[in-house]
């Protein structure tokens, strides 16, 4: 039997071991769970160290003489001071630099793409420029956005007209949560389908059963 075949049989055994929790907690499940945690931790530590420290820092700086990366490396080293209680304040310099740099990058872009573009997206197209169903859909989005924003406006008591509009907002929120729940169910079922396709289709096919 090939190594691929052995690997697939092992994967099938581990899948069944994990599924066994659905019946009750047992040593097979715990073994599979601990194996997953251990293997994942080892994989990610090695991968992150190689990708970040070796590939992005050590090779360019010491192999290619790209000294511009040194200040970044020093800031990265400062982060390790978090491990010592008395010296962990030193790491704040690195964090401050990171927060400042990324705020500068992120704030204008997020305002443009997540706020400005989304506000523009709530504007309905002018009549005649789009099918009536699209205009109706856009109006629905506009009503939903405004009513939900009013629901989250807490400086005015939710009575009278404001109360009624915020009720509409709650309805939109509930529809949103329902859609989100439906998609979540679909996602979880898909994972089960993936495992069953592996057990009932891929595995027998690969092993010639």
């Amino acid at each position: 039997m090939s190594w691929d075949g052995i690997g697939m049989i092992l994967a099938a055994i581990l899948t069944i071991a994990i599924f066994s929790l659905l019946y009750r907690d047992n040593p097979f499940y715990r073994f599979a769970e601990h194996l997953l945690v251990g293997v994942s931790a080892g994989y990610y530590v090695v991968h992150y160290f190689y990708s970040s420290v070796i590939r992005k820092f050590a090779v360019p700086v010491f192999g290619q003489g790209d000294l511009w990366l040194l200040p970044g490396g020093v800031l990265g080293l400062l982060m390790l001071f978090r491990l010592g209680r008395k010296v962990q304040w030193v790491s704040r310099y690195a964090i401050a630099f990171y927060v400042a740099a990324w705020s500068g990058y992120l704030i204008p872009s997020v305002i443009k793409e997540r706020i400005q573009a989304q506000i523009v997206g709530t504007l309905p197209p002018s009549p005649g420029s789009a099918p009536w169903i699209a205009i109706l859909g856009s109006l629905l989005i506009l009503v939903g956005v405004v009513s939900i924003l009013i629901y989250f406006y807490f400086s005015v008591e939710h009575k009278g007209a404001v109360g009624k509009i915020s009720q509409v907002g709650i309805t939109f929120l509930m529809v949103g949560f329902g859609a989100s729940f439906g998609y979540t169910v679909m996602g979880r079922v898909s994972l089960l389908i993936g495992r069953f396709q592996f057990l009932f289709q891929d595995l027998p096919q690969a092993l010639g059963w």
């Binding site: 573009a117 989304q118 989005i141 859609a179 989100s180 998609y183 979540t184 996602g187």
Partner: peptide
Amino acid sequence: ATAIQAVLVYPYFQTGQ
């Protein structure tokens, strides 16, 4: 996107982003 992420992705499709 995964199904769980789909609800978060829809607004970007609606705006054409």
